[in-house]
Amino acid sequence: MKKLITAALALSVSLSAMAEVDVMDAYVRAMAPSQKMTAAFMHLTAETDRRVVAAYSNIANSVELHTGYVEDGVMRMRQLENGIELPAGETVKLEPGGLHVMFIGVQTPVAEGEEVTFTLEFDNGEQQTITAPVKSVMQKMDHSGH
């Protein structure tokens, strides 16, 4: 039994060491009261061509990959049926006003100071679990404005 645990431990260590996608600056947007949705943002860099195909989290009924963009002065948001492409070596930015991991049907609003754990699934079947702090978009704005 002990051997098995050791083996499992070694396996999990080697798996995370092998992680081919580097996740930087991940955060989840603090929610306004009465909001049922929020989004996670991060910078992703893959060693070889990868695609994020799905995301999961316990905090929401559904987690989807979406993009927001302005076209002809109109804000649009669409689900990314084919996921998010991560060309090898290129840093893909998930940030406000663009690509994001969307949490739909969040039962308990997340607040600043908390952390949210979610998992990204890639096209090669690998999964990567991320624990990200919850941040207020307003504070980020105030900082960027000065």
């Binding site: 947007r29 306004a32 927001g68 804000m75 948001m77 006003g97 969307m102 404005g145």
Partner: peptide, 21 residues
Amino acid sequence: FTSCPDVCPTTMATLSSAMRM
């Protein structure tokens, strides 16, 4: 609208920040 997790809150936050300036 409020079921907009990204662009609307970002606009509202930008606006709130701008109003304080």
